[in-house]
Design a protein around this nucleic acid. Structure first.
Lengths: 228, 228
DNA sequence: TAAGAACCGTACCGTACGGTACGCAAATGA
DNA sequence: TCATTTGCGTACCGTACGGTACGGTTCTTA
């Protein structure tokens, strides 16, 4: 019965436990960490507290399971190895940017990040465990997709950069800026969402100015140098 | 260091209460929100709980006071209106970047951000109050300094951008990327701090490629070709 | 069908928190 | 000098949480 958390592979929970985790996530999204009590989860999921402790060990185990469960639901689309052109690369990058913004602005994502951040500075060594878990589970996926895209762009001689890690950091910063933090702090998300499309486009254009070869950034008039 | 520690003139607390707030901040930094109990603060500050409630109303009032108190200690230096050159602008931007990274990575800043984020998604309308407070108190200062710098650069015909707000967002994203979030999640800060200098320089060089005139970004070879 | 496991609902326990009340000492002021 | 204020220390109260125990019910399985 002990479910071992295997890194990398999305471990599926039994349906009963999945339903419980779903309810737990719902409670967390609606009321924050304060609303995520063992009794509350048991009541919302129509199960007993004893079963909770049997399945997840203790409260921290439940939190970890929630993160793993949610991460397991996110699927990254691997772009098939097509022949990249300037246009298709730009489209793929913009799609990546929009997906990234959508993920970061999601209810559950925000709630889980708030939860992990809240647990981050506890004295116990267990403190940053959730943070690391969230980082590895959630971010790795996104980063891998971006890395593949960047590498493909370089192979096709459409991008130039020395350090892929650094290029990705630049890409991320241009796309997200301080948006994530503002959302985490409670700023209303809806007005931002309407600007995601334009924001993604501008970010990619800027990125292409920095790391694209020749004058690939012609989507909008670039603030810097010449366009066709 | 451009940050000056001075008793805030905006909201000055009596010395006794300032000492209490100092202890409260210390407890928060050391043990997180869980360690910030009324009894704990009273014990650490050698005062009674009754006095705490008399001075700050309730727990939320104490938290707000802590944010205001800490924000009052940070002062930004306005760059005197000197005649900007390409070199001096670049130096000022890099100094700004380093100061920004230093502020964001500070113990108290991280603790307060974690606190506000943790309170962000409570049902009550009061939830995002701390977040807004932290945003307005802390960020406005930084943003104002950057805005002044950017505007001065444009006046001197060294920078070009249409929307100052958007240019600032780009600058912020290039400097910070996902660093702030990773630190909030509990990642070890020390290794990052050693890279702040280089990071600031690279971010500013990239920013100058995007928004500088001519080939001012000479720190690294600029991937785009000069024009105009 | 009968034994056994899984599980629900509830009650229970120890603890810790936010907030209040009270007694008493030190300052303050006329 | 005495009255008033201020504030410390402690005790107290109601509540709510994490975690455990137990009786009763449903489901599995041989």
């Amino acid at each position: 019965m002990d479910v071992i958390v295997e890194a990398g592979k999305t471990q599926a929970y039994p349906p009963r436990q999945s339903a419980v985790l779903e309810q737990a996530l719902r409670l967390l999204v609606e009321g924050g960490e304060k609303a995520l009590t063992t009794a509350g989860v048991a009541r919302a999921a129509n199960c007993s507290k004893e079963s909770l402790y049997k399945w997840f060990g203790d409260r921290d185990g439940l939190l970890s399971a929630m993160i793993g469960f949610q991460a397991g639901k996110v699927r990254t689309v691997d772009v098939a190895a097509e022949t990249l052109t300037i246009e298709s690369l730009r489209r793929h990058l913009i799609a990546f940017a929009r997906d990234l913004l959508d993920v970061l602005s999601g209810d559950v994502s925000l709630a889980l990040n708030r939860l992990a951040i809240g647990q981050a500075n506890r004295k116990e060594t267990k403190g940053s465990k959730l943070g690391r878990l969230l980082q590895e589970r959630g971010r790795r996926q996104v980063e891998r997709r971006a890395a593949a895209l960047l590498e493909a762009g370089r192979q096709a001689r459409l991008l130039r950069f020395k350090d892929a890690q650094e290029a990705y950091a630049t890409l991320y910063g241009l796309i997200v800026s301080d948006l994530h933090l503002r959302m985490l702090l409670g700023e209303t998300v809806e007005p931002m969402k309407r600007e995601f499309a334009g924001r993604a486009e501008r970010a990619i254009d800027a990125f292409l100015v920095l790391h694209g070869v020749e004058n690939v950034g012609q989507g909008r008039e670039t603030p810097a140098k010449g366009q066709e």
